[in-house]
């Protein structure tokens, strides 16, 4: 018998001493993707600059650090704005806000979207109907007008600017969960019929455990890809809102409201240092995140492997 057992185990082809987890395999796949890796480098750089950079700056956000509306120079690498504040410092601090908004909005949307999607897919029936019809309603309302209204409400009830950032994060997150919920639900619908779920059922597990420990981990690849892409979406949306003056409001800097500071023709034509740096930052960040998202999709999707 022992002899026979040995043949079965060699059949399994396991010469490796340490079994490779799905994550190592996926990361190996991702590393081969040059575009995704350059996107990853850009993002890491962006985070480093935004979160570490301000500590190295000799200027502070609150005080005017030089003459107003001066172009780039040795003391102010990216120039100063009309109040004489250092643009480089403001771009970095705005980056903190924008990246944070992107991340928090993504986390909110992932938490809501995957939970509701999983519940809908697992229980089906009326739970499914209620959740998915609600998602349909959310999807059918154009996000921008709704956010503009909500932004106006926020301005109206005079939320202090520093708290407003958090509200914007949650609003953006709350607006973007239905897409993810749909995807997760679809996955769960197929997964719940798999034999291993029947096996889990036979073990006498609770529904909660079955959903969150057995089903959702199987949808992680999809969640990761959607989450990555939704960071980019949230950053873009936050910029749009801030540009319109209803997202993050001055004096808190964000890339969007820095650009909106330059929305008169004179600033636009004569002082490009006001709006080019935040514009480039938005552009690079969003492109980089999208590229990473695509790379992750290729790496995590088992059907894509050659």
């Amino acid at each position: 018998m022992a002899q026979a057992v040995d043949t079965t185990s060699t059949n399994a082809e396991m010469p490796k001493t340490k079994p490779a987890s799905p994550w190592t395999l996926a990361f190996r796949q991702l590393r081969r993707n040059k575009i995704a890796m350059s996107g990853l480098i850009v993002i890491i750089m962006m985070f480093l600059i935004c979160f570490v950079g301000p500590f190295l700056s000799p200027y502070s956000l609150e005080t005017m650090s030089g003459p107003s509306n001066k172009g780039p120079s040795a003391s102010h690498w990216l120039g100063t704005d009309k109040l004489g504040r250092d643009i480089l410092l403001r771009v970095m601090l705005a980056g903190r806000i924008s990246l944070l908004v992107g991340l928090v909005a993504m986390m909110v949307s992932v938490a809501i979207g995957s939970t509701l999607g999983a519940l809908a897919g697992y229980y089906r029936g009326w739970v499914d109907t209620i959740i998915m019809r609600f998602a349909d309603i959310m999807l059918s309302i154009p996000a921008l007008p709704l956010l503009i209204i909500l932004g106006a409400v926020l301005s109206d009830i005079q939320v202090p600017p520093d708290q407003r950032i958090y509200l914007v994060m949650f609003l953006l997150g709350f607006m973007s969960w239905p897409g993810l919920a749909r995807l997760v639900r679809g996955q769960i619908l197929t997964l719940r019929e798999q034999e291993f779920m029947q096996a889990a059922e036979v073990l006498g597990l609770r529904d909660k455990r079955k959903i969150f420990r057995h089903l959702i981990p199987n949808t992680i690849p999809i969640i990761i890809v959607v989450a990555t892409l939704s960071v980019a979406g949230a950053i873009l949306m936050e910029s749009v809102l801030s540009y319109l003056g209803i997202g993050v409001v001055p004096p808190t800097p964000s890339w969007g409201n820095m650009i909106s500071a330059a929305n008169n023709l004179i600033d636009f034509k004569k002082r490009p240092w006001l709006w080019i740096p935040p514009g480039v930052c938005i552009f690079m960040t969003v492109i980089a995140i999208n590229v990473i998202g695509d790379g992750l999709r290729d790496a995590l999707d088992p059907k894509m492997k050659k």
């Binding site: 798999q194 034999e195 291993f196 029947q198 096996a199 073990l203 006498g204 199987n218």
Partner: peptide
């Protein structure tokens, strides 16, 4: 379930959570 009465299935390839 699982404690007093346990069950194994026909298809071992798909009965474990991947």
């Amino acid at each position: 379930r699982g404690n007093e009465i346990a069950m194994i299935f026909q298809e071992p390839m798909t009965s474990l959570n991947p």
